[in-house]
Design a binder for these strands. Structure first.
Length: 572
RNA sequence: GCGCCCUUAGCUCAGUUGGAUAGAGCAUCGGUUUUCUAAACCGAGGGUCGUAGGUUCGAAUCCUUCAGGGCGCGCCA
């Protein structure tokens, strides 16, 4: 819903009609022309760069053009109270009260969709995909919440979104994981000492899994090889249950879980390779030795190679190991071929910072596999730096020392974690101060926004006012005061925030915006402390302007927090 | 060495896909509760937007150079 689109159209058609008078030859390229809320220091309701853009294309003086356009608009568009020229050629517009009423009614009419714009794509967003070898830790949280909120945001605009989790239940890591469980079982059942070898998982949760398996089964577990298939299935189930339970507690529910093993077992790799051989993206050949540290396992052997260098990757990538078995990347090709075959319009992967080097090859792979029909965009979330008592706190699953999501959730509310993890752009590192997040105070932005909602609900309770879904207003009794106007302008900005957040896949813009909106409200509210005339409630009543304003704020808070999936308490 | 990301107030960060006088929070200093929720508000100080060029009516934003920091650079997953 673009609430100013109709005005922009009116202006454009007016200009087209008067093209000759305005000396405009080129008029078909309207790219970059906008009509939006001016910066805070300006009092006008709307602002357009139209004259500057058109003047550039037609090689005219922007100010002269603006003077003519100003006269045209003034004479023809009734909803505008005043039209001014400012700066290098901006057209600034004051709306009439009638126009404000129209816009506000538009918002009220379809309040639960206020801010969304029509979009109808089929998305697949893959996120979390934490290895099923242990519980989720704090670092996983960021990508998890990012992906979840991005999904909500895209759905808000009318897209269809599949939230997907890729289970890496294949390969050496799983072997080591299952071996760890096996050894813990031996420890419990036969009192054998747990050997702390370097690739094993020493974490306490492994013992829990072992214990659960023992409780439910009366097998001997006298050979690792013989027990493997059974143990792998059981241990992975317990592990995934842990992860799913953590995700649920964070408010995240995936629509789809895809197993790497099942992809490989159903000849997925072979099919993907067949496809890529057709398109000549795969060849048999030799690779250069790896550049970083020396690798004693490296062998110069003829093997299948994906030509990822065609897509900007540093080098081509091996699909087979020394023994001819598939690499992780080969399996991933199969998985993404599977995604492509499910006919999505757009694929998104949310990755951790340690996977940046992987982006080009996998994005290239999707283009190759789909014949350029499907695009994959990888969003990389930078590290979460955990601080404890002023010192960085390192997490390592291998070492078994980490703060799990479960630990975190036992002390910090889900709301705070969700809001906090989105309070930075995904491109920058996030400092997550354990102590700070534990504080339930103004340090924590989520409380500030929730408090805004609680205050509004308190007012509504006080005057016994019931908010109706589809309300309308007929006119505005008195002009909005400057505080109300500032809030209105912020409200009118909401669709733009949503649009940009959606286009750029940047959900962090939402918490930032909501915080700003809450600031304006708290500020206005407090004016009543200084000046009696700004008190909201007088003789048990609230004037119409305030009723309008707080209902609008409610709409935005509700739509925004619904996307974030953070609660809005009525009382605090 | 190569790739990706970052560099904006003392600190942590926003910044509208090129717009007008670059903004918040924290910290510092000073104010506001017999009053609708002080979990709040108001005011003050604080900036060569890392450096040097370029593109144009206009650059924190785009291009190039250099410097500093982070992540990665397997035939691990």
């Amino acid at each position: 819903m673009n609430i100013f689109e109709s005005y922009l159209k009116e202006i454009l058609s007016l200009i087209k009609k008067n093209q000759n008078k305005l000396n405009l030859n080129e008029i078909n390229n309207f790219k970059g022309i906008n009509l939006e809320i001016p910066p805070v220091n300006f009092n006008e309701d709307l602002s357009s760069n139209i004259c500057m853009v058109l003047a550039k294309i037609n090689k005219l003086n922007p100010n002269e053009l603006a003077t003519k356009v100003q006269a045209l608009i003034k004479a023809n568009i009734k909803d505008f109270k005043d039209v001014k020229i400012a700066g290098p050629g901006f057209i600034n517009i004051d709306l009439s009260n009638d126009a404000l009423v129209k816009i506000i009614n538009k918002i009220f009419k379809d309040s639960s969709n206020f801010g969304s714009f029509n979009s109808n794509f089929k998305f697949n967003i893959e996120f979390v995909s934490a290895n099923p070898t242990g519980p989720m830790h704090v670092g996983h949280c960021r990508g998890a919440i990012f992906g979840d909120v991005l999904s909500n945001l895209l759905k808000f605009n009318g897209n269809k979104v599949t939230k997907e989790y890729y289970i890496n239940d294949y390969g050496n890591q799983i072997k080591n994981f299952v071996k760890s469980v096996y050894l813990r079982i031996r420890e419990i059942k036969y009192e054998e000492k747990f050997k702390d070898e370097k690739d094993l998982y020493p974490g306490e949760y492994i013992r829990d899994i072992a214990q659960k398996i023992l409780t439910n089964n009366n097998l001997k577990f006298d050979s690792f090889e013989k027990s493997f298939d059974f143990l792998a299935k059981e241990a992975l189930n317990y592990s995934m249950d842990m992860i799913k339970s953590d995700l649920t507690k964070l408010g995240i529910i995936h629509d789809s879980f895809v197993s790497e093993k099942s992809i490989v077992d159903s000849d997925g790799v072979i099919n993907a390779i067949k496809q890529l051989k057709k398109t000549k993206h795969i060849e048999e050949g030799y690779l250069e030795p790896p550049k970083g540290e020396e690798n004693k396992d490296w062998k110069k052997i003829k093997r299948l190679i994906f030509k990822s260098a065609l897509f900007g990757d540093d080098s081509n990538r091996a699909l087979q190991k020394n023994d001819g078995s598939w690499t992780y990347f080969a399996n991933d090709l199969a998985y993404h071929f599977n995604k492509v075959s499910r006919k999505y319009d757009k694929l998104i992967n949310i990755l951790g910072a340690d996977h940046t080097g992987y982006v080009k090859r996998i994005e290239g792979a999707v283009l190759a596999l789909s014949g350029n029909k499907t695009s994959l965009e990888c969003k990389v979330c930078q590290l979460v730096k955990l601080f404890k008592k002023g010192k960085p706190f390192k997490m390592s699953k291998r070492a078994g020392e980490f703060i799990s999501v479960n630990d975190l959730l036992s002390e910090v509310s889900r709301d705070s974690i969700r809001f906090m993890m989105l309070n930075r752009s995904n491109d920058v590192e996030l400092e997550f101060d354990f102590e700070k997040v534990l504080e339930k105070s103004k340090e924590n932005p989520v409380y500030y926004v929730q408090y805004c909602h609680a205050r509004i609900q308190s007012i509504l309770r006080m005057i016994n006012f019931k908010v109706e879904k589809k309300t309308t207003i007929k006119k505005i009794d008195v002009n909005f005061n400057k505080y109300e106007k500032d809030i209105l302008k912020k409200i009118f900005e909401w669709p733009k925030i949503i649009r940009i957040a959606s286009i750029k896949y940047e959900p962090h813009r939402i918490p930032f915006y909501l915080y700003q909106l809450a600031t304006l409200f708290h500020s206005y509210w407090s004016k009543g402390n200084e000046d009696e005339k700004y008190k909201f409630i007088k003789d048990g009543k609230v004037n119409n302007n305030i009723i309008i304003i707080i209902q609008l704020i409610l709409i935005v808070l509700q739509n925004g927090m619904k996307i974030l999936n953070v609660s809005l308490p009525n009382k605090m």
